[in-house]
Design a protein around this nucleic acid. Structure first.
Lengths: 253, 253
DNA sequence: TCTTGCAGGATTGTTCAACAATCCCTACGC
DNA sequence: GCGTAGGGATTGTTGAACAATCCTGCAAGA
C-alpha cells in the first residue's frame, strides 16, 4: 500500500486526487449529527459575542430553542467544551469561559511556537510545495482589505484569523490544524471583551500582506522573524486593551 | 499576585504548595462523574493494550461491564474521542484508531516543536524557577532506571513518558499540558503495535538522565539541542519498528 | 463465477420521561 | 450578625422506546 512512496503515474495521482475529493464529500455528509448541528449554532453564538463570557447556558432553555433533547444538547456541550468554548462546572452547568491576562499570554506563547515553526519549516520542503498552495492566504488578505474598506472590523478580524489558520494549514499536519482551531476559537473569545476592534485589527492587515509576499518570495527565514515580532505585538495590543476593560469589569477565575 | 516574581519566604512557598495540593484534591473529588470514571477505565484499557488498535467498542457490551447507562457511556466515548484515543464512525460505532507512519511523523513533529521550545524558554525565566522544580523529572529518571533493572520495559516506557510530561509542565502552560497529554496518549497507542519494548525504551533511560543533568546545570541551550536530536532518534526508532510490523499486518486508515 | 437486489437481524442515533444528587437562596433561630 | 435547615431549581444518570443505518446471508440473474 504505502510502502513504495510515490509510485503513481500522472493518471494514478489524478485518480487519487479525485478519490480524495469524494472522500471529503462523504465525510461532510456524515457530519450531519444533531449534536454537531446544535454545536455549530452555539459555536457561532459564542464566537460572535451573542453569549458573553461568564454566561451560563441553561439546558432546559436551550433544548426548547434548539429543538433537541437534553442528551443531545449535552453532547453538543461536550464538543464545545473540548474546543475551549465552554467550561463545565460539575452540578452547576456550562458557562462561557472568562479568560484573563494569563490566558492571553498562554495562548500567544503557543501561537508563536506553532506558527513560527510552520513558516520556518517551509524552507525544508519548499520544492514539494504545489504551486497554488498560497492561494488561500492571498484570498484572506484581500478579504481583510475589502472588509476594512467597508468599515466592517469584526469581518477583518475573521479574515485575519483565517489567514493564520491557512498559514498553519501549510504544514499538512492534522493535529496542528486541530490545535490551531482551538487556540483561535479561544482567541475569538477574547476579542469580544474588547471595545475597539479597529485599533486591534487594522495594523495587521498590511502585515499579513507583507507576510504573504515574503512567503511568495520564499524568504522563509525573514517571514518567520517577522511573524514572531508580529505575534508579540499583537499580544501586547490585546493585553493593553484587555487591561483597560479589566479595570471597570474585573473577571474572576 | 504574580508581579513580584519570587517574593515568598520558605514558609510562604510551603503554604502555597499545601494550598495547591488541597486544590488538586478538591478537583479530584469534583471529577467524580460517571462518564469520566468510565472514561478512566477505558483509557487505561486502551493505553495498556488490552484494547488493540482497530477494535470496536460495543455499546451494549460495555454498558454491562462498566455498569453505566448507554447515554453515559457515549459521553465517555466522546471524552476519549477528543483525546484521540477513540474514533467515531457514524452509524458504525467507536473504534480504537490505527495510526500509520504519517501519524508518527506528525506526532513527533509536534513533540519536537513543543518540548524543544519549553526547554529553550527556560533560559529566559531561569531566576523565577523555584528550587525543587526539577524534582519530578529526577523521580521519573530513577523510576525508569529501577524498572529497567527489574526488566519491566512497559513500565520504563511509562516512566519515560512521565519525564516528558513533567518536562512540558515546567512551562506552566495549561494548554501545553493538555496538548502534550493528548500527544502522549496517541503515542502510547503506537507502542503496543511494537513487539520489542526493550530496544525501544532502553536507550532513552540514560538520555533522560543526561537531559536532567543538563537542566540542573542550567545548560538550557545544549539541553534543547540534545532533546531535538533525541526526539529525531526516537522517531526513527518507532518508524523502523513500525514498518517491520506493518509488513505482516498492514493497517489501513 | 461474479454481480445485483432484497429481506432480516443487529447496532447505532436520538428522544423522552423520570428519579437521584447537588447547588443556590432564603428564612429561621440563636 | 452568624450559622443552619429547608425549599426550589438545576444538573447527573438511568432505562426504555423508536427511527435510521449498517452488516450478513441468500437468492436471482447475467
Amino acid at each position: 500500500m504505502s510502502t513504495g512512496g510515490a509510485e503513481g503515474t500522472a493518471s494514478d495521482t489524478g485518480r487519487q486526487a479525485w478519490l480524495r475529493t469524494v472522500a471529503a464529500d462523504v465525510a461532510r455528509l456524515d457530519r450531519s449529527s444533531s449534536a454537531e448541528r446544535a454545536a455549530d449554532i452555539l459555536r457561532r453564538s459564542i464566537t460572535e459575542g451573542a453569549l458573553p463570557p461568564g454566561a451560563q447556558l441553561s439546558e432546559v432553555e436551550l433544548t426548547e430553542v434548539l429543538e433537541v433533547s437534553r442528551n443531545t444538547l449535552r453532547e453538543a456541550f461536550r464538543l464545545l467544551t473540548h474546543e475551549g468554548l465552554l467550561v463545565y462546572k460539575l452540578h452547576r452547568g456550562v458557562f462561557v469561559p472568562e479568560l484573563d491576562e494569563h490566558d492571553v499570554i498562554d495562548l500567544y506563547r503557543l501561537r508563536r511556537v506553532l506558527e513560527v515553526d510552520v513558516v520556518r519549516g517551509l524552507a525544508d520542503r519548499d520544492p514539494e510545495l504545489p504551486a497554488g498552495r498560497l492561494e488561500p492566504l492571498h484570498d484572506d488578505v484581500e478579504a481583510a482589505e475589502a472588509a476594512a474598506s467597508a468599515d466592517r472590523w469584526p469581518a477583518v478580524g475573521t479574515a485575519n484569523m483565517r489567514f493564520h489558520e491557512h498559514l498553519i494549514g501549510l504544514a499538512d499536519s492534522a493535529r496542528m490544524d486541530a490545535m490551531t482551531g482551538r487556540l483561535l476559537a479561544e482567541l475569538r473569545l477574547l476579542f469580544h471583551v474588547i471595545a475597539t476592534p479597529r485599533e486591534l485589527h487594522e495594523p495587521y492587515i498590511a502585515r499579513n500582506r507583507g507576510l504573504f509576499e515574503l512567503l511568495e518570495a520564499r524568504k522563509y527565514e525573514q517571514a518567520a522573524a517577522d511573524l514572531h515580532q508580529y505575534l508579540l505585538d499583537s499580544e501586547q495590543g490585546i493585553l493593553a486593551a484587555f487591561r483597560d476593560k479589566g479595570l471597570r469589569g474585573p473577571v474572576g477565575t
